[in-house]
Computed example of a mutant assay.
Amino acid sequence: MVRNIAIYITIALTICVLINVAFQTTETPSLGDYSTKGLNLSYTVEDNTDVLSLATTEQEDYEFSPYLGKSFVGFKEALAFKESGGNYFSVNTFGYLGKYQFGAGTLKLIGINNPNEFLKNPKLQEKAFIANVARNKWILRRDIKNFVGRRINGIIVTESGILAAAHLAGPGSVKKYLRSYGLDNFADGYGTTVHYYMKRFSGYDTSFVKANKKAKAI
């Protein structure tokens, strides 16, 4: 009998404890305990679309992609990075200017007679790059036709490699390199060769730029 009473008391106490716990856990939490005060909630991502729009002045349907791959934009941005680190306001020790490191003589050929103004104008620099590629493509049109796909000095010749080398050394030096099958390998003041540029910038799609004998940036 005493034992049964003890069991009933134990059960009753257990029920009371469970009811008490249930009521405590169903209380509405105070939202005041949760605050964003003091936290930095301002996050920004650098917007490069303005630069890319300059880079594609005549490519109206260009769609931004963080991966440029072997596209024309990939080609020119890779070349710019090698030339100046992509800095529009760079001037090297030989006086070459801008993102793509143009010389004053080349600028005159594409209609730019004020190097100082050119250096201050990123949009003009992008136009200058496209004009220069178009002009070089016209000058080298026969060499592109005759040598693309051939192997010279261990590398397969591509149109983008030819155009990159022409940007470095001028189309005349590229003609000499190709027609000598790599024996006449021009090097610039820093020791960078036609062969190196043809290898490094091989395989990009440069069909976007059309050959133009009279291409001008202005």
Rank of each mutant, 00 (worst) to 15 (best):
Met1Asn: 03
Val2Asp: 10
Arg3Leu: 06
Asn4Trp: 09
Ile5Glu: 04
Tyr8Lys: 06
Ile9Cys: 09
Thr14Leu: 15
Val17Gln: 14
Leu18Lys: 08
Ile19Phe: 15
Asn20Val: 14
Phe23Cys: 09
Gln24Ser: 04
Glu27Tyr: 11
Ser30Pro: 12
Leu31Gly: 07
Leu31Ala: 01
Gly32Arg: 15
Asp33Cys: 10
Tyr34Gly: 00
Ser35Leu: 11
Lys37Gln: 14
Gly38His: 14
Leu39Val: 14
Asn40Gln: 11
Ser42Met: 07
Tyr43Gln: 11
Val45Ala: 05
Val45Cys: 01
Glu46Pro: 11
Asp47Arg: 09
Asp50Thr: 13
Leu52Val: 07
Ser53Thr: 13
Leu54His: 03
Leu54Tyr: 02
Gln59Leu: 14
Asp61Met: 08
Pro66Thr: 00
Pro66Cys: 00
Lys70Asn: 10
Val73Ile: 12
Phe75Pro: 01
Lys76Glu: 03
Glu77Gly: 01
Ala80Arg: 02
Phe81Trp: 03
Lys82Pro: 00
Lys82Asp: 11
Glu83Ile: 00
Ser84Ala: 09
Gly85Leu: 02
Phe89Asp: 05
Phe89Met: 03
Ser90Arg: 12
Val91Lys: 11
Val91Thr: 09
Phe94Leu: 05
Lys99Asn: 05
Lys99Ile: 03
Gly103His: 04
Gly105His: 03
Thr106Phe: 04
Lys108Leu: 12
Leu109Asn: 13
Leu119Gly: 06
Leu119Trp: 08
Leu119Ser: 09
Lys120Thr: 02
Lys120Tyr: 08
Leu124Met: 13
Glu126Leu: 10
Phe129Ser: 05
Ile130Gln: 04
Val133Cys: 11
Val133Gln: 06
Trp138Asn: 13
Trp138Asp: 09
Trp138Cys: 00
Leu140Pro: 11
Leu140Ile: 07
Arg142Gly: 11
Arg142His: 13
Ile144Asn: 04
Asn146Tyr: 14
Asn146Gln: 07
Gly149Thr: 06
Asn153Phe: 02
Gly154Gln: 01
Gly154Pro: 12
Ile156Glu: 07
Thr158Val: 08
Ser160Val: 09
Gly161Asp: 01
Gly161Pro: 04
Ala166Phe: 06
Ala166Ser: 10
His167Ala: 03
Leu168Val: 02
Pro171Glu: 06
Gly172Thr: 11
Gly172Cys: 01
Ser173Trp: 10
Lys176Thr: 05
Leu178His: 11
Leu178Asn: 13
Leu178Gln: 03
Leu178Ala: 12
Tyr181Cys: 00
Gly182Lys: 03
Leu183Gln: 04
Asn185Leu: 02
Asn185Pro: 02
Asn185Phe: 01
Phe186Gly: 00
Phe186Ile: 00
Ala187Trp: 08
Ala187Tyr: 08
Asp188Asn: 15
Tyr190Cys: 04
Tyr190Leu: 15
Gly191Trp: 15
Gly191Glu: 11
Gly191Met: 13
Thr193Val: 08
Tyr196Asp: 01
Lys199Leu: 08
Phe201Pro: 05
Gly203Glu: 05
Tyr204Ile: 12
Phe208Glu: 12
Val209Asp: 07
Lys210Pro: 04
Ala211Met: 12
Ala211Leu: 07
Lys214Phe: 15
Ala215Asp: 06
Ala217Leu: 10
